[in-house]
Design a protein around this nucleic acid. Structure first.
Lengths: 142, 142
DNA sequence: GAACTTATCTTGACTGATTCAAAATAAGCA
DNA sequence: TGCTTATTTTGAATCAGTCAAGATAAGTTC
């Protein structure tokens, strides 16, 4: 759903205007998985140098709300975005360099979705973040 | 491990000085589970009005590093702290009011700890955050 | 295709949590 | 009791992200 046509479709379905900044932002997120906002701004400006950071922030928030992209924000890091959504995957974060990778949970479809004692909360999502060390940093440590 | 004696023990074991701000901070965290930094600063100042916010930040970071307290930082919220550590429990966050509650994962001891494809990462922790609506907000919505 | 309405963007200032740095203080040792 | 230096205080600085007002352009209507 990240082709030009797909983007327009998503936006129009939500009664949102199809604008150059929005198209550029969504393309950038698709092209740079797990990129932070600054990276996305840079990527967008390669093709559209005049797009403001505010437009990027607005677009990212809009797409996140529409469920087209997903925001990830591990402790101590700025927000990252990815266009891979709706497949219940999680992430590993490297404690040393902050590198992020996708992980399909071993347990199956919807792991950990049911808490044993939910204190009356109505739970709609389980977010899992794995912490560890990436191959690069492991090598550097050795 | 949050008694006065316990605190001293922990600090001394780490070759750290036992100071009033540190003791006050750890007590405050124990007394106010899931409190954010500002709440902790206020709590500390009830007994020790002259403690600086910087000392609180430093102490919180130190205790987090020592593993005596745990930092939780859900998306869109400031850091929270709790003194309950080492028992592999998780948290539910209310999307509306940000309220936070403890949750013991249903799956068992170490749920979701083994990723199916870890991309060569060496994983040491799985952090789970449940998102939903708290009883209070559910009532308010109805 | 031109005019119009208003959502969206640009610009620039601002916020608020957290961090940095230098001088003052007080823990714990001798 | 005095000394050394880890901690704390004080006050400024940073940084991601947000707010607000006017300018622009997407999409609709004629």
């Amino acid at each position: 759903m990240t082709s030009q046509a797909g983007i327009e479709q998503v936006l129009k379905a939500a009664s949102m205007r199809v604008t150059q900044p929005r198209v550029a932002v969504l393309s950038a997120v698709a092209a740079h998985p797990h990129a932070d906002t600054e990276t996305i701004i840079s990527a967008v400006r390669e093709d559209h140098p005049n797009v403001s950071h505010q437009a990027v922030y607005d677009s990212l928030r809009l797409f996140t709300k529409l469920g087209v992209i997903r925001q990830i924000q591990p402790q101590g890091h700025t927000a990252r975005y990815e266009a891979r959504v709706g497949d219940n995957h999680h992430h590993v974060v490297c404690r040393q360099c902050g590198k992020l990778a996708d992980v399909d949970c071993a347990v199956g479809g919807a792991p950990c979705l049911h808490a044993s004692n939910d204190h009356g909360f109505s739970i709609d999502e389980a977010e899992v973040i794995y912490w560890g060390t990436c191959p690069g940093c492991q090598a550097a440590n050795a």
